[in-house]
């Protein structure tokens, strides 16, 4: 018997096949409730009230474009896995349609949680997973900060300059659409603004919203 074993090394049991790493191979998860408590303090959103029924995610119209489903956002927030949340595209893909909040049996304000997470990314050093969406929001707010109202022409100019220039294919498609709208009297050439603008500086003092 021993001869047989030594003479046929190729009949040794094969090593276990390579398999993709799973969550079980990673460092054990150590839930940290500090983030959840901080969000609750800052916003009043009761993340801890979620019991995982997933109504938010079943009703969400944009899960097809998300890397985390809405219930997963709440779950990760409960665990304190903030970096995964900040790196996700979901927080930018959320359209704030309010379906999740409307249907949540515990009134967990998911759209507001998405906003809170977007704000921590916008104010921090981590790049946004959906950079163009962030640029769009900044272009829009830049118009508001300057005039108190939004001038589409100025907003588009800001947006295009920060996303591949004014002559890329996307910009050309937008220019074609813009011309068609202009012909129909739907684009103004001159910006409009609020008469009183003293308040704008106080409201936008903390940030260079247009940058």
């Amino acid at each position: 018997m021993s001869q047989q074993v030594s003479a046929a090394p190729e009949s040794k049991p094969a090593p276990p096949p390579e398999r993709p790493a799973t969550a079980a191979d990673a460092e054990p998860l150590r839930p940290d409730g500090a983030f959840m408590r901080q969000v609750e303090r800052d916003t009043g959103i009761s993340i801890g009230a979620c019991y995982g029924c997933k109504k938010c995610s079943n009703g969400c119209p944009v899960t097809f474009a998300m890397d985390l489903h809405p219930y997963q956002v709440v779950r990760l927030a409960q665990f304190g896995l903030v970096e995964s949340l900040r790196a996700s595209s979901t927080i930018w893909v959320c359209a704030s349609c309010q379906t999740c909040l409307t249907r949540c049996p515990n009134e967990v304000d998911l759209p507001r949680l998405m906003d809170y997470l977007k704000q921590t990314v916008a104010q921090g050093q981590v790049p946004a997973a959906e950079e163009k969406t962030l640029v769009f929001h900044r272009a829009f707010l830049g118009e508001v900060a300057k005039r108190g109202r939004v001038f589409e022409g100025g907003m588009m100019a800001r947006y295009l300059l920060k996303t591949g220039g004014a002559f890329g294919p996307e910009a050309m498609a937008n220019a074609k659409l813009g011309l068609a709208m202009f012909k129909r009297g739907r684009l103004k050439l001159l910006p409009h603004r609020t008469r009183d603008r003293r308040w704008l500086k106080a409201v936008f003092k903390a940030k260079e919203a247009g940058s």
Partner: peptide, 24 residues
């Protein structure tokens, strides 16, 4: 002399601005 409501951009990026635009 109404002002912009701030729309999605304000509530996404700057909660204080969204609140103040609405308050005015």
């Amino acid at each position: 002399d109404w002002n912009c409501c701030g729309a999605t951009a304000a509530h996404s990026l700057d909660h204080a601005a969204a609140l103040n635009l609405g308050a005015r």
